[in-house]
Design a binder for these strands. Structure first.
Lengths: 213, 213
DNA sequence: TATATGAACGTCCGGTCGTTCATATAGTTC
DNA sequence: GAACTATATGAACGACCGGACGTTCATATA
């Protein structure tokens, strides 16, 4: 086994990378990707600032990986659970509920990584912004796909505009974070849940597929 | 005329204050209230950095006044035009359209001051956060009031929950900014407008009060 | 055993940040 | 005119930032 080495150094490095990225995403959900300084990130983990440069060329490379890491976390916590629900309108609602659960359980101290960095980078051209945009585009395309699937299954009225409905679901999900952090947390989730639920029931020929409230 | 002085110094000072605050709100809509540095703010106006301290004790005092200034701008550009529409469901929709127009006309280079600073300060306790929260609370109370008025006028079904509907309208309005800055601007406004319009028409006993689309 | 490599460290640099201070300039009041 | 005050300036400050550098240590390869 010549090339495929069992290198304890690389393993250690991979573990460090994961630790750092997880902490970076957590902190960035609070202070943003740029507001987060390497010094404070290092202090939060308990390593030295210069240790970063063994893993990333500069801060931007770390930011790029942090976006990818957050997208992966999103898929694991929100997309994956939804895919366990039956396809159609129930899966669509399961997706929304998984998102609200993710927020309610405070997986990230700042609530939502993407909300923080979208507001931060929407005016700042560059690779980081591009990657954030791509993540958002993929996410909304995924919602749109679920809507189309529900229409194909006859669980949503055929006249429904998938992009329009995806926009609405995304809006209500995101407002849940804002409201929960600045005003009333319980109310925020209740409003966000009820809005999507009633919207879907109104478009669904068989509302009994969904809970009443 | 002993006390009531015609002081050209104070007048000049007031004008400077307004200029500075307007520019501060513009820049903060892009980079946030903290991301905005005094040096760059001074450079954008063409004054010296230390000139600020003739008007404000420290940066936080300026931030507090900037929040108030932005709230005033919001009232003038969005609340005031809506109040010229007839009370009821038409006024509610006029409010939403005024908001979308405010975004579409790029009054602020960053799109929305409050969106930027909410994401920035939701995790940072202090007076600035408190003032941002108060502005948001007042704004949603205003929407809620318009909903209640529409119900009282019989233009919305009596079963409507004002807080719930206000939440939905606010969510769709805010998502218009995010979408317009990161994805497709035209689509963003179209989706946000149509979502609220169809929602109101669905709740309104006389949908002819509102445009068809 | 000798050599190479990846991870992590401590130190230092140039630059920017908010803030302070002494000073200059107008405009107002006596 | 002198005394006073609001507005603005430029120079300097300590703190912190991202990043560069040489070094140390543990591990892997030959």
């Amino acid at each position: 086994m010549a090339r495929m080495t069992q290198d304890g150094r690389r393993l250690r490095g991979l573990r460090s990378r994961e630790t750092i990225l997880g902490q970076a995403v957590s902190l960035a959900s609070v202070e943003g990707l740029d507001g987060l300084s390497l010094g404070r990130l290092a202090a939060a983990i308990g390593i030295s600032k210069s240790g970063f440069f063994a893993h990333w060329r500069d801060k931007e490379e770390l930011q790029l990986d942090a976006v990818d890491w957050a997208a992966r976390q999103w898929r694991e916590h929100i997309v994956a659970p939804a895919l366990r629900a039956p396809a159609g309108v129930r899966r669509l609602f399961a997706l929304h509920e998984a998102r609200l659960r993710f927020y309610a359980e405070h997986v990230l101290p700042g609530g939502c990584f993407f909300r923080a960095v979208q507001a931060e980078f929407d005016d700042r051209p560059g690779e980081v912004r591009d990657r954030i945009v791509r993540a958002l585009r993929d996410w909304e395309a995924f919602i749109r796909g679920l809507v189309e699937e529900a229409i194909a299954l006859g669980e949503l009225a055929p006249g429904v505009d998938p992009a329009q409905l995806a926009f609405e679901i995304e809006a209500l999900g995101e407002m849940a974070v804002t409201h929960s952090r600045l005003l009333d947390e319980r109310l925020a989730f209740a409003h966000a849940r009820r809005a999507v639920l009633q919207r879907l029931r109104g478009l669904c020929p068989d509302p009994s597929l969904l809970p009443e409230d």
